[in-house]
Design a binder for these strands. Structure first.
Lengths: 139, 139
DNA sequence: CAGTATCCCATCAGATACTG
DNA sequence: CAGTATCTGATGGGATACTG
């Protein structure tokens, strides 16, 4: 087990494939990385988070925060004042995940142009001409 | 733009947040990383892929492969024989994504124990005692 | 302010059956 | 062998209304 390459049949790395699924289930949803990245700059209260993540609903913000807190990626601190004030802050674990996501973002920024080009090429050669035989008999 | 930290309000990094979404939409699904990692060891034909990724249905394998091909992450080569033989192979782009995913897997393997511990702690203190007041008035 | 509680629907993915 | 086609249940997430 000196080299962990995670290549070949999944049955050869059942543990690792389970771990990957766990992380991807965590960060693969619509809002988690946005919340984590937003908190990457420092602690924020609920309403500020909602303002900093455009489009997120109260429901999804609350759900996302609860899951992240449960997994120890952030802390929730409620101040017994009126009106209430609740502050969310990344833990060390949360910050380390943020860094891991950043490296993925680096790949994304570096290669998304290449991917976009491939998609356009595919639309032209595939939809435009080659597969016409298959597409024409649609109803 | 010397430092790309992806921290703070999402409105401060609209481009990057879009790129992240694109990658996560690609690798965040149930099968993509498993297929990519499986092909990381070398080219495989359709039936071998299905055998190497336990639980995947024909439908999902086909869909996943099509999307990966469209994005230029792998190539599909059909040999005009009978019975048919189709071989899938990662492109350079696909291999670079595989590496990016590996670093995430490294984080997962290194920290999943910590996360699991947090979850257990949460279940004991949260479900077990503290939030009883809220839980008891369930219907 | 910081959440809960419901309703509702669009998409995802599994199972099954069929085909070049 | 390498797919396609169709049906269907699960679930993710938006909109809206209400509360301590």
């Amino acid at each position: 087990m000196a080299e962990r390459t995670l290549a070949g049949p999944c049955t050869a790395w059942p543990q690792d494939s389970a771990f990957i699924r766990e992380v991807l289930d965590r960060i693969g949803d619509k809002w988690t990385v946005l919340v984590i990245s937003t908190l990457g700059a420092g602690p924020l209260r609920y309403s500020d988070l909602q303002a900093s993540v455009p489009g997120i609903s109260q429901r999804m913000l609350t759900l996302t925060l609860k899951e992240l807190e449960r997994d120890g990626l952030l802390t929730r601190t409620a101040f017994p004042e009126v009106p209430p004030r609740v502050v969310y802050e990344l833990t060390d674990l949360g910050r380390s995940l943020h860094e891991a996501v950043l490296s993925l973002a680096g790949w994304a920024a570096g290669h998304h142009g290449e991917i976009a080009a491939h998609r356009r090429a595919h639309e032209e050669s595939g939809v435009g001409r080659a597969k016409t035989n298959q597409l024409l008999r649609k109803h």
